[in-house]
Nucleic acid binder design. Structure first.
Lengths: 119, 119
DNA sequence: GGCATATATATGATCAAGCATATATTATCT
DNA sequence: AGATAATATATGCTTGATCATATATATGCC
């Protein structure tokens, strides 16, 4: 599937998807339960939006045990990465984004991929 | 009104608005009738979308005689300009955008602001 | 009056939300 | 090891709201 501004921008027009992507831009890799906690939304909602982002290949997923980790697709064309970077730049001042990031940092019992991999 | 990624991205999520903005990015200044012709859409549709873009201050308008010219708001924050630039970069390969631009270039009796100003 | 632009109203389509439920992986118990 | 429970994630399905569209009409400039 070919990425176009139309497709990418439409995916960014939803608050839940935008908030998720901005966290992924800063944190690199997050599982559904981390996003669910950070954004304070119900799990099916997060899962559904991540699936739609995966469908258009804005994010990639990776199963690690019982967790599924999502991250920004490294194969995105340069203009798309730049567009996401600009969005993040604009979000750094954003109250909502800052609150989301803070909530994530304070999450207890955050799943740690490395521990489960090496045990 | 404060510009945020949420507001800007939502405005870019509509095809008519996106196509109009991409032409404005390349051409600098266009009136409603030029956009109507280039995008091959009915006038009220263009007018309405431009009004919504003006409401959130993504574009500015300027009356010159019977024409109203729209252009990208120069006062946009840097991240917003960068986001629009990235969108344009992605649109340069886009079939639709190229067709729109081509149609505009071939428009006959294009209103010329300078002539009407000085006559 | 004619052209350019704006707005009002009604209709229709898209899409997100929420609930319930299904699948998958891990942990526990006997 | 097999059965069971718990946790993480995904997916139908229905409802409701948002928003773009089209037609018609109005305003403003030459």
């Amino acid at each position: 599937m070919k990425m176009t501004p139309e497709i990418l921008l439409k995916s960014l027009s939803d608050q839940t998807r935008l908030r998720s992507l901005m966290l992924l831009m800063q944190e690199g890799e997050l599982c559904v339960c981390e996003l669910t906690y950070a954004l304070n939304l119900i799990q099916p909602k997060i899962s559904r939006h991540l699936a739609s982002l995966r469908d258009i290949q804005v994010v990639t997923d990776k199963r690690a045990g019982q967790w599924v980790y999502y991250s920004i697709n490294r194969g995105l064309p340069p203009w798309a990465k730049e567009l996401l970077q600009a969005s993040l730049k604009g979000s750094l001042n954003d109250k909502q984004h800052r609150a989301d990031l803070n909530k994530l940092k304070n999450m207890s019992n955050r799943p740690c991929e490395l521990l489960t991999t090496y045990e």
